[in-house]
Amino acid sequence: MTLYRPDSLDSALSLLGKGGMTVLAGGTDVYPGLRDGAPPAHLLDISGIAGLRGIARAGGQWRIGAATTWTDVIRADLPPLFDGLKLAAREVGSVQIQNSGTVAGNLCNASPAADGVPVLMALDALVEVQGPGGSRQVPLTDFIAGPRAVALDPGELVTAVLIPDGPGQGAFLKLGARRYLVISIAMVGAVIATRSGRIDRARVAVGSCGPVARRLTGVETALTGAAPGDVARLVAAADLPELAPIDDVRATATYRNDAARTLIARAILMAMEAPHVA
C-alpha cells in the first residue's frame, strides 16, 4: 500500500487519474478495514490539500470544503439554518472521531446510517465534484445512489458540499439504544421556515429507516401552513411511502416505523422553537 498526501487539488486529480485510488479524508471509515484482507494499493489522503477545509458563505451559498471535520462544523459560527447540522455533528462517533471525520467523507461513505445525510438532504445540499471533465454539482439526493454507492465517476473527487442560504431553522434527532457512539435506529433532519408562527416551508428527511436516507415530500407539503399544535396530528396521519424500514440487528421494522414518526414530529417542532444555541 502507498499513501499519497498531495497538497494541491491538481496533483490530487492527476493522481486520481491514474486509477486504483481509495480516497480518504479523515480516514475513520477506511482504517478499520485495513485489518481484513489486502489493503488498498493506493490511498489518497486529501486532508492536506490547501483550500479544501473550512466553511464560507459566498453568493447566497454556503460552502463546506471536503476536508472540513465535524469539529470544524461544531465550532463554526453559523446561522440557525445549520442548527440541525451542528446537532448531527455532535452525534458522529465520539469527540476524537469528530476531530478526524469529515462531512464529505460521511456522504461518500454512503452508509444508510450516516449521521450527516438526512440533515444535509433537508438543507437541499449539492455535492461539488471535480474530475477530468471539470467541475459539476450534484444534488445530494442524486449523489447517494444506494447503500454504500455514490454517483462519482472514475477520476472524480468531491471537493465541497454546497448549501443554499435561506430562511429557516434546522433540527436533528437520532434514536439509538444508547445516547452516544451508536449507529442509529432512526434519525431525522428537519429545516423549517416559519411565518407568523406557521410553517412556511418544511424540509424533512429520514435516515437509517431504509437502504438510503429520503426526503419526505408528502409530509413537507402537508405541513405547509401548519401551526405547532397541528404537527403531531399531521405527521401521524401522513402517508409516508419513503419510510421503508428494514429489520436488522438494531431494530425491527415495526419499531422503526413507530419511532420514526415520533421523531419526525419532534424534529419539526424542535426546528420551530425559538432560536437556541446548538
Binding site: R178, Y180, L181, I183
Partner: peptide, 11 residues
C-alpha cells in the same frame, strides 16, 4: 461495540 452497547459514561 458499535452494535453491542455496554454502558458508556453518560449512561
Amino acid at each position: 461495540p458499535s452494535t453491542y452497547k455496554i454502558p458508556a459514561c453518560s449512561d
